[in-house]
């Protein structure tokens, strides 16, 4: 029972935007919570598509990569 991708993207974006006010960087695991019915791989694919659409962005420290919402986060973080 694959979830609808566009629907999932909407849910992820809503969830991430809500979260971003408190926590500007999210692990992929945090995004799973956007839709408990979606499989990890579906969430990953949807989230990565959102990045391509400029709606989410990556934060990579080199060792780990996290997601953020453009516009949120700390200006001091280069």
């Amino acid at each position: 029972m694959a979830v609808d991708k566009e629907e999932l993207k909407k849910k992820i974006l809503e969830y991430a935007t809500k979260k971003a006010k408190f926590k500007s960087k999210m692990y992929i695991k945090d995004l799973y919570k956007a839709d408990p019915n979606a499989k990890p791989r579906e969430v990953k694919n949807a989230a990565n598509e959102l990045v391509k659409e400029n709606k989410l962005e990556y934060f990579s420290s080199g060792s780990t990569t996290m997601y953020g919402v453009p516009g949120f986060g700390n200006p001091e973080q280069e």
């Binding site: 926590k23 500007s24 960087k25 700390n74 001091e76 973080q77």
Partner: peptide, 9 residues
Amino acid sequence: RIGKVCEIP
């Protein structure tokens, strides 16, 4: 500085 540049959790 830590609260500004890092996520405490």
